[in-house]
Nucleic acid binder design. Structure first.
Lengths: 234, 234
DNA sequence: CCAAAAGTGTTCTGTCTACACCCATGG
DNA sequence: CCATGGGTGTAGACAGAACACTTTTGG
């Protein structure tokens, strides 16, 4: 995939779905699906995303709940509960098989969107930027084990701006949250880089209901160059 | 009201309601109410809080939506949409009239709570701490016009720790977000303090759906010593 | 003049930034 | 031996913490 204009190596991408009914027929929109009585909200969101995009996200978090009376038709107010997901580089290798109605877009070049989905995406991105410091979050994007360069690429993709690699590396290492696995990873013909992971205590240190679901991980390594995210509505 | 143990002058308080039915009969819980078809979620939350506690909050924000299948009875999953409110010192003067089933508690000394309401409160507090920098938020607690000492008290109450007043004052003034109103406020027989307000641009600078509702304000001044917050469920 | 809160100055320390530099590797 | 990314050193700018100090007021 492409490289971003400014000195940034990686890019955030997300899948959109072309609407097949009114309103906004033919426009791009966030993937979505219905609520299921015997499932948690997270499970319903996961299913909605999976069925429309074939993604198996490793991170799923509730974003916001919308309940505008203008959307209601008669009885109860219509409520949309929006989730967002992160998909790591490893999963991505199998994904970009785009279905007929699904297409991946870089977040800095999105098409016109249906409803208020553009605003939802902007809000999700600001939340993501605020949380990128959390190991639980960044791990979903870069994988369990990673080099400092890979971690650096994810930070740049998420923040959208260039970060000095030398300073980044020092900051990360001095945080005490990373440990050297002893492994080396060679990219191309260059000097092999040390492979790190977050220490257990860093991964555990979070309190809220975020990061609750889908802790299953398939032992994958981050190798791709791009960073993927998805939003879904229930 | 009391003074906190450590050098902190003000305290965060919140209202709880004693449950009058099963489950958790007799236990303390967050105020709550039902959803209304012809109202937005915010309006419903506002109504729920108002009817149980007689509060007219000046700040209302969506916290999280719960939808555990374990809560369901048959049909659709039962969903709770939690909002939180901030109530400034001025409003407070009329409030602490506690109804039979409503009582105010300092957040560092809450009773046993029904359901998972304790966890909800903890999450709300961490969110509040993260947002206390935003003029839109702090203004709801301290009022439109305030002295630097009052602002300082709010910061201490919310963060729960002592903050050096001299440094605090410099930081605030150098931020460029405050402007001197020219007014003076005398407390007791001491030197009068300058009264400040946030500049318009600072109050406008926010993006998300938070801070959307209930912009009505009754031109009140913060004079009380305590800071109040409320959570409600819909 | 005293107490108490308002408000100012100064020093110290740690963190962020920019950028020069050295190291390891395969071709 | 050279190009490329991995990795280290260092000097200046800046922001926060600690705390001594001065000012204004009513009693």
């Amino acid at each position: 995939m492409d490289t971003a204009p400014n000195g940034i190596g990686s890019m955030l991408w997300m899948p959109l779905v072309k609407r097949v009914r009114q309103p906004f027929l033919g426009q791009w929109a966030l993937p979505g699906g219905g609520l299921r009585a015997d499932h948690s909200l997270e499970q319903s969101a996961y299913a909605a995303l999976e069925s429309t995009t074939s993604l198996h996200p490793r991170y799923l978090e509730q974003l916001y709940t919308f309940g505008d009376p203008a959307r209601s038709h008669g009885g109860l107010p219509m409520v949309s509960i929006v989730y967002w997901a992160l998909v790591g580089g490893a999963d991505a290798q199998t994904e970009p098989v785009e279905g007929n109605n699904v297409k991946w877009f870089p977040v800095d070049n999105l098409p016109e969107l249906a409803f208020d989905h553009r605003a939802i995406i902007d809000y999700a991105l600001s939340r993501l930027r605020g949380k990128i410091e959390y190991p639980q979050v960044v791990t979903r994007l870069v994988g369990e084990r990673f080099t400092l360069s890979q971690l650096h690429d994810v930070y740049e993709a998420v923040t959208g701006e260039a970060i000095d690699l030398a300073n980044f590396r020092r900051k990360m290492l001095s945080s005490g949250q990373l440990e050297d696995t002893g492994e080396k990873l060679r990219v191309g013909r260059n000097r092999p880089a040390a492979v790190y992971r977050y220490v257990q205590s860093a991964l555990r240190q979070f309190s809220s209901w975020d990061y609750s679901v889908n802790q299953s991980n398939h032992g994958s390594h981050a190798t791709g160059n791009d960073v993927l995210a998805a939003l879904t509505t229930v």
